[in-house]
C-alpha cells in the first residue's frame, strides 16, 4: 500500500536528476547572492564606521564619510516618491476602476506606460536634463533628479497597483454597490486595503529602483558631494557616489565598498519598514476603522 502512494519510492533516475538540477540551480542563486554580499562586506567592513556614515566626503571621497550623500539620496528619493506615488496610484485606480477594460483612453494610457517602462534610464537622464534642468530651469538639482526618477517609477507603481486592483473579484464591487456604497468609498475603504500588499510590493520595487539609479541622475541631480542647502542645489546620491568612486577615483575602492554596504543595509531596512507599514495599515483597515477597544465586545447572553 505504502509504495503505491509514496512518491519517494517511485523515483526513477530521471526524477533524481531533475531534483538534483533544481537544487543546484537554487543553490547557485543563493551562492551568487552570498558571494556578492560577502565580497562587499569584506571590501567595505574595514572602512565602515559611524564617522563614515555621518561624516562628509574628503579627498574626492577617498577619505571622510558619506553623510552629505545620504542626505541627498534621501531627498531625491523623497521627492521622487512624493511625486510618483499619488500620480501612479491615482492612475492605477483610474485604469482599474473607472475606465472600462476595452476603452481607447485606458489603452492609450497603458501603452504609454509600457513604453515608459522600456525606456533605458540613460534616456530618462537626457530627458530630465532637457526638460527639468534646462526647460523648467531647475538646473542640476535634487528637484530635477527626483522628478526624473518619478517618471521612471510611474510604470512600476501603476502596473503593480493596477494588477492588484484587477485581481480583486468583481463580486466585491457588486456587493459594495448593492449595499449602497459609493464608488469612491468602495475604492478607499474596500479595494485599496485589499490591494495593499500589491501597493507595498510596487512601492518597494520602486524604491529599490530609485536607490540604485545612477544614469538618470548623473545629468539631473548631478554629483556635487556637499550637503544640499535646498532642493535646488545639486546633490550626489549614494549610487552615483559608488559609481564615481569606482570609476573615476583611483584608491577609492574601499570607500566604494563601504558605501555599497550602506546602500544594501538601507534597502533592507526600507523593505522591512515598508512591509511593516503596509501590513499594519491593511490590518487597521480590515479590522475596523478605529480599532482600539473593540476586542472586548462580550456577548450579553440572551
Amino acid at each position: 500500500m505504502a509504495e503505491m502512494v509514496s512518491m519517494k519510492s517511485m523515483r526513477t533516475p530521471r526524477d533524481c536528476f531533475a531534483k538534483l538540477a533544481i537544487y543546484c540551480a537554487a543553490l547557485l542563486v543563493c551562492a551568487a547572492f552570498a558571494w556578492i554580499l560577502s565580497d562587499i562586506a569584506r571590501g567595505g567592513m574595514a572602512h565602515l564606521s559611524l564617522d563614515f556614515v555621518i561624516g562628509s566626503p574628503r579627498d574626492a571621497g577617498r577619505a571622510g564619510g558619506i553623510g552629505s550623500i545620504l542626505v541627498s539620496t534621501a531627498l531625491v528619493l523623497a521627492i521622487a516618491l512624493m511625486a510618483a506615488l499619488p500620480l501612479g496610484w491615482t492612475t492605477a485606480a483610474l485604469l482599474a476602476e473607472y475606465v472600462s477594460a476595452g476603452s481607447r483612453f485606458g489603452g492609450a494610457v497603458r501603452y504609454s506606460l509600457q513604453v515608459l517602462a522600456a525606456v533605458p534610464s540613460i534616456v530618462f537622464g537626457l530627458f530630465g536634463n532637457a526638460f527639468f534642468s534646462i526647460y523648467l530651469g531647475l538646473g542640476f538639482s535634487i528637484l530635477s533628479g527626483g522628478l526624473t526618477l518619478a517618471c521612471m517609477l510611474l510604470p512600476i507603481l501603476v502596473s503593480t497597483a493596477e494588477s492588484g486592483l484587477r485581481a480583486i473579484p468583481d463580486a466585491h464591487r457588486l456587493s459594495a454597490a448593492a449595499l449602497g456604497m459609493s464608488r469612491t468609498s468602495t475604492l478607499f475603504r474596500l479595494l485599496l486595503p485589499i490591494a495593499a500588499p500589491s501597493l507595498a510590493a510596487g512601492l518597494l520595487l520602486g524604491i529599490g529602483r530609485a536607490i540604485a539609479e545612477t544614469a538618470a541622475l548623473l545629468f539631473t541631480s548631478g554629483y556635487v558631494d556637499r550637503t544640499p542647502g535646498s532642493l535646488l542645489d545639486s546633490g550626489r546620491t549614494l549610487a552615483v557616489h559608488i559609481f564615481d568612486l569606482s570609476m573615476n577615483v583611483p584608491g577609492g575602492d574601499a570607500a566604494a565598498y563601504a558605501s555599497a554596504l550602506v546602500l544594501i543595509a538601507a534597502l533592507l531596512l526600507i523593505n522591512m519598514v515598508a512591509m511593516r507599514l503596509a501590513t499594519d495599515w491593511q490590518r487597521r483597515k480590515i479590522m475596523a476603522e478605529n480599532s482600539n477597544g473593540y476586542s472586548n465586545i462580550d456577548a450579553p447572553r440572551a
Partner: peptide, 21 residues
C-alpha cells in the same frame, strides 16, 4: 448573491463598512 460574497475583511468590519457609509 448566489455565492456568498463576504468582503475579505473581519466579520465586524463587513457589517460596519456599509453602516459607516
Amino acid at each position: 448573491f448566489q455565492k456568498p460574497t463576504p468582503f475579505p475583511l473581519s466579520i465586524y468590519r463587513n457589517i460596519e463598512l456599509p453602516l459607516h457609509e
